[in-house]
Each structure stands twice: as C-alpha cells, then as structure tokens.
C-alpha cells in the first residue's frame, strides 16, 4: 500500500507558486515551464495556485520583513506531505538584496534574506532566473523527496 502511495505521490505533484518579493523574473520563467516546449503536465505537475491542493510550493524572490508572515502562513496552510522549492538566487539566499559576503548573509533594513529564513526549504534552484530545465530538475529532486514520504 505504501508503495502505491509513494508511486502516486511521485507521479502527481501539484505545484503552487509563491512570489515573495523581488523582480518577478522567476515568475515568468515558471510560466515558461508550462509552455508546450517544456510541458510539465507530462510529469503529472498541475498548476494549482492554492496551497491546500499543492504538494510542492515553489517560492521565488527574497523575503522581506513584511512578507515573512505571509509566506509562513501559506506554508502552514499546505497539507502534509509537502516540499518547498526555493527558486532563483533571491529565494535561495537573498541575492543582491542582502549584505554580507558569500555565505554570510546579513539582513538589510527591509530584506531578511532567503526563503529558508521563513520556512524550511527542501530544494534550492540557483539562477537569475533559472533556466526552465533547471526548474524541472529542482522539481524532480523535490519529487524524489516526496516519494520518500514525510
């Protein structure tokens, strides 16, 4: 039974895309993934803009102090098992919006850094924006994690 469930989870990941704050470029790139060329529906991915239905939350943009609460709430409203993909450099670390060098991310007076400052992140997809294939790869890693269960 668990094998069947794991198979089904791997074959039907529904995504919700959350724009936390930033330049919107990654949003557009996510839309590219849905175009005929990349067509993620063949992998079972459906675009459900609703955290209640989604298994994978794709977040893009850096987290501001204002949006941290909302991101947390939307993550809370997803039902287990759930995985989070941080899309783009801003979502991974804060990108050009934060101070500090290399790994040392220091928050500015509005931006607190990557999405992992607000919610636990499972997959990081660097890129500014990531190429659609990179997004697909990131989702594929998240699917592998989903298969293993919670």
């Amino acid at each position: 039974m668990m094998g069947l469930m794991s198979w089904a989870r791997g074959k039907s990941p529904w995504i919700a895309v959350l724009h936390a704050g930033g330049c919107n470029n990654c949003d557009i790139e996510v839309l590219d993934v849905l175009t005929p060329r990349f067509d993620v529906e063949r992998l079972g991915v459906l675009w459900k803009q609703n955290p209640r239905h989604a298994d994978i939350l794709i977040t893009n943009g850096c987290v501001s102090k204002h949006s941290k609460v909302f991101i947390k709430r939307i993550y809370d409203q997803m039902l287990a098992p759930k995985k989070v993909v941080a899309l783009g450099s801003c979502a991974c670390t804060g990108g050009i919006y934060v101070e500090g060098e290399g790994r040392n991310v220091e928050e500015t007076h509005t931006i607190i850094g990557g999405v992992d400052k607000a919610i636990p992140v499972d997959v990081y997809v660097p890129g500014c924006p990531p190429k659609p294939e990179a997004i697909i790869q990131g989702v594929a890693i998240a699917i592998e994690k989903l298969k293993k269960g919670d």
Binding site: L4, M5, A8, K11, S12, D39, E41, R42, L46
Partner: peptide, 16 residues
C-alpha cells in the same frame, strides 16, 4: 502542441 500526461495520470492524482 504539448505532449500530455500518461494514461495513469487521472487515477494517480486521486490516489495521491
């Protein structure tokens, strides 16, 4: 002009 999901897709969604 997309490829579309495989045949088990409707039922996989529901089982999931």
């Amino acid at each position: 002009a997309r490829k579309g999901p495989p045949a088990y897709q409707p039922i996989a969604d529901i089982i999931k």
